[in-house]
Write a protein that binds this DNA or RNA. Sequence first.
DNA 1: CTCTAAACGAGACGGTACGTCCAGTCTTCGG
DNA 2: CCGAAGACTGGACGTACCGTCTCGTTTAGAG
Lengths: 218, 218, 218, 218
Amino acid sequence: MTTADHRTSPRRRGDVLVRAILAATLAELRERGYAALTMDAVARRAGASKASLYRRWDSRAALVMDAVYELAPSPGQVPDTGDLRGDLLAALRQSAAVLEGPAGAALRGMLAEALPEPGRARELRARSRGTNRALMAEVLRRAVERGEIPPGAVTGPRLEVGAAMLRNHYLFHNEPLGEDVLIGMVDDVLLPLCRAGPHRPPPPSPDSQPRPARPGVG
Amino acid sequence: MTTADHRTSPRRRGDVLVRAILAATLAELRERGYAALTMDAVARRAGASKASLYRRWDSRAALVMDAVYELAPSPGQVPDTGDLRGDLLAALRQSAAVLEGPAGAALRGMLAEALPEPGRARELRARSRGTNRALMAEVLRRAVERGEIPPGAVTGPRLEVGAAMLRNHYLFHNEPLGEDVLIGMVDDVLLPLCRAGPHRPPPPSPDSQPRPARPGVG
Amino acid sequence: MTTADHRTSPRRRGDVLVRAILAATLAELRERGYAALTMDAVARRAGASKASLYRRWDSRAALVMDAVYELAPSPGQVPDTGDLRGDLLAALRQSAAVLEGPAGAALRGMLAEALPEPGRARELRARSRGTNRALMAEVLRRAVERGEIPPGAVTGPRLEVGAAMLRNHYLFHNEPLGEDVLIGMVDDVLLPLCRAGPHRPPPPSPDSQPRPARPGVG
Amino acid sequence: MTTADHRTSPRRRGDVLVRAILAATLAELRERGYAALTMDAVARRAGASKASLYRRWDSRAALVMDAVYELAPSPGQVPDTGDLRGDLLAALRQSAAVLEGPAGAALRGMLAEALPEPGRARELRARSRGTNRALMAEVLRRAVERGEIPPGAVTGPRLEVGAAMLRNHYLFHNEPLGEDVLIGMVDDVLLPLCRAGPHRPPPPSPDSQPRPARPGVG
DNA sequence: CTCTAAACGAGACGGTACGTCCAGTCTTCGG
DNA sequence: CCGAAGACTGGACGTACCGTCTCGTTTAGAG
């Protein structure tokens, strides 16, 4: 009455099965995109049953997130190119490579779906932003060591600027990022920013209006 | 909450109907979010038939995009606060206000859905990014006029940095942006960047160039 | 994206669709039996969607009951063979013909499923038992008219005996009823019973049981 | 209600295990009915594994049939009340008691499921009908001995009439059989039938008219 | 004004995917 | 080596939307 013969005689369980399902998820993600990815299709492709999917992941978003972050880059892997500019380019290229693949498609999809659930949103932030912040912190730490930039420049929102621009591109484009655009990000934004030194708050003028403050700053 | 009394004699047509549908779309977007927004629900809420929706918009994404950009801010509306810092804060607050409303929910949702269709993606970019670029260009033009920043600083990727950071926040958080974070963006990133002057490419020292070597980054 | 061309261009609705679904139900019932009949299979076979089924019938039992009783015999159709024996044989053959077809399979199936729901059980009784009682009542009425049997013999549980034996056979056998068995039912049971005249309570022996006192129709 | 402490050392095997499973099956049958009885639930309740069930019974129907006929009444147990009427009432009450319990629910359920499989259907007939035939044969044998009825009346389809009417009631009603209905069956149908004497086929008169003849009607 | 064609509401239609449940098989591990 | 536990594939369940379509009704504008 039933099947009686799976394609691989020792029926898959545990990790073997999990890996097969995640691989199928990535394949679907790459070929069809996030919006068209269905649990049915993943199960079919993995040769698994839907019950096996729902036993482990309670939603499409959870499944995709797991599938994607099996291949996310770990921080600290940015090669030391010898100077800040090279390191920045390398870091951006590395992040871009991730966003060009299924991770980009997944990121776009999950923003719509996972964000309403606080738990999932937190996980998403931790994985995506945390990774990138650590990456960038490492690059800047090296530059400080080399004496290329002053120590005070590495803190605050600046760590996010590169990742923000990168995501901005891929969220709106889903095409590969041109090399010239990437170089523009580094030379026009990130390098000037790093060299600008720490922020000094404007003088506390009594009327609280931050007056021009040295009109010709230059 | 729903449309008042459409089934009383004057059956709505044309613009009246369109506005009712867009209003229902926005209401659904606000209350349920993009992922849970269905054409059925919009039609029901608007007291319209699904045929009336599909006659005008060929997909959920098209409908939502129209609904959202009925209330997008036009560029050039940033108040002139008298100095660059104030203008930047105002511009960011204005963009943030848009992203906090239904437009933010819609943006997140459409990235997943509309991006595979090149036409829609183009429209989305034109509306969202174009608006923000124009806004920022206006702010920087004024600063140049006032002599706060050198003219060469206004072009290129820098026009996108503010919007990129803003979107980055809302895509990942869907909570209102704290005032301190916003001030951090301006003081730590945008102001230093504007004052940094135009980018000058580094001297082509033969050793400092990250030649192809080490392509393994990804 | 969707089908855009049903097999019969003007998409079926209303009665046409209903008839197609009922026909598919009967076909499934005949080929696979009640236990193996699924809503999915009926919908597939009818070229209809499951929603169209559930819009009209809230369960498999309801669907099958409707399908079956589209071809149930109406009472009063028993041919007048001229004498009671012939009429009884004809009536039993007619009921047997129904039970041999999909109606028999359905009856078996629905006893298990429909009985817990009082409403459906009532409908089932009305249709199946009511029909048969009316059939038998007509046959006996004719026999009384002819003077073959006394008028008092026609009431009470006797009207059910034939149908009960018939159902008993088909519920346990699902093979056609042999002609000899059927003749046995008539000659050994029904005819003697009809000729036995009305029931007379046993003499009131002082120790005997509490007499039924006209047990009523039942 | 569940099995007390199966996981304590002497793990149940063989008959002990079988009895525990059958008891759990009966309990499920009583509480939930046949349609809602699942192998999972039986296994859980019995503290057994599904494999232990399938090792012994190849389907739900087989399991239920075994469970039910562990408590079927054996023939010959009908008490001798001294006269035919009392014996018939006793026999019917005894059969009715069985049908009111889980056996009735099981019977209804298995008709749909077990009948397509000839082997199981045969077993079902042997157990249910055989038992009842033997019961009734014993009752009639006594009546012949007492001289209440002529010897020729005891054979043939008449042995089935009582059981058929009883099943007919429970299959369609699943409520307890009213005492008045039961008395009606005996007084209106079974007693007249027993007293009617053996059937003699009508003489092949060319006009096919079975003359009134009141031969042994009495 | 009447007449007609289009637009409208309502919602049925064929589909696809959902997330759940159970059947029956298979694997692992403890006793 | 058997039994408990339960993971596994498969497939039906009943629901929700999709985008298309038919159905009458209402409206606007042409004649």
